[in-house]
């Protein structure tokens, strides 16, 4: 992988690498509240089986994960744990924020204990709105993330450029 660091990735190789990454996303599930149940329905249940998209939702640890799906109410108390989880993931890593609570605090917008949006602590790639989002919405978010991975310039990402703006679903 020295090629990526050197910034001289041949285009066909980039394409092949991105194609491989796109269809082998190991997604870590960080379920914090009721959206976690919806995430289970969208990721693992037979109707919306996410493995057909090439996403494996069962890594044993964040150290093996490419993607973390944060779903549910983020409280100020759990913020350090989320940050540590994110730091433990190897680069390149992606974050999907699922549900209104994770996006912006949702119904707990005036709460004394709820963090108003997980994007205050980790950079979010995809926002999936909804309370809770439909499974189709989460899958749409995953497909949008795969598009982003497909079109990514890994060398630029390595240099810290090309992070890309967050994409809201819908």
């Amino acid at each position: 992988m020295g090629l990526v660091e050197s910034g001289r990735m041949p285009k066909p190789l980039t394409k092949l690498l991105n194609l491989s990454r796109k269809y082998s996303v190991w997604a870590y599930q960080w379920g914090l509240a009721c959206c976690a149940i919806e995430m289970g329905a969208a990721l693992a249940a037979p109707r919306y089986d996410v493995m057909r998209l090439g996403v494996i939702p069962f890594p044993a640890s964040p150290r093996q994960a490419d993607l973390v799906i944060i779903s549910g109410t983020v409280t100020d108390k759990i913020v350090p744990a989320i940050r540590r989880l994110y730091e433990q993931m190897p680069d390149p890593k992606y974050v999907i924020s699922m549900g209104s609570c994770t996006n912006c605090g949702g119904p707990y917008w005036d709460s004394y204990s709820v963090t108003k949006g997980v994007d205050q602590i980790v950079p979010v790639d995809i926002y999936v709105p909804g309370c809770p989002p439909r499974p189709e919405a989460l899958l749409e978010g995953i497909v949008l993330l795969q598009e982003r991975i497909q079109n990514e310039d890994m060398a630029a990402r390595w240099r810290g450029e090309n992070r890309g703006d967050p994409i809201p679903v819908g």
């Binding site: 605090g105 005036d110 709460s111 004394y112």
Partner: peptide, 11 residues
Amino acid sequence: PLRKEFPLLAR
């Protein structure tokens, strides 16, 4: 925070 005079900063 459950005392009624606790300010809700978002508000």
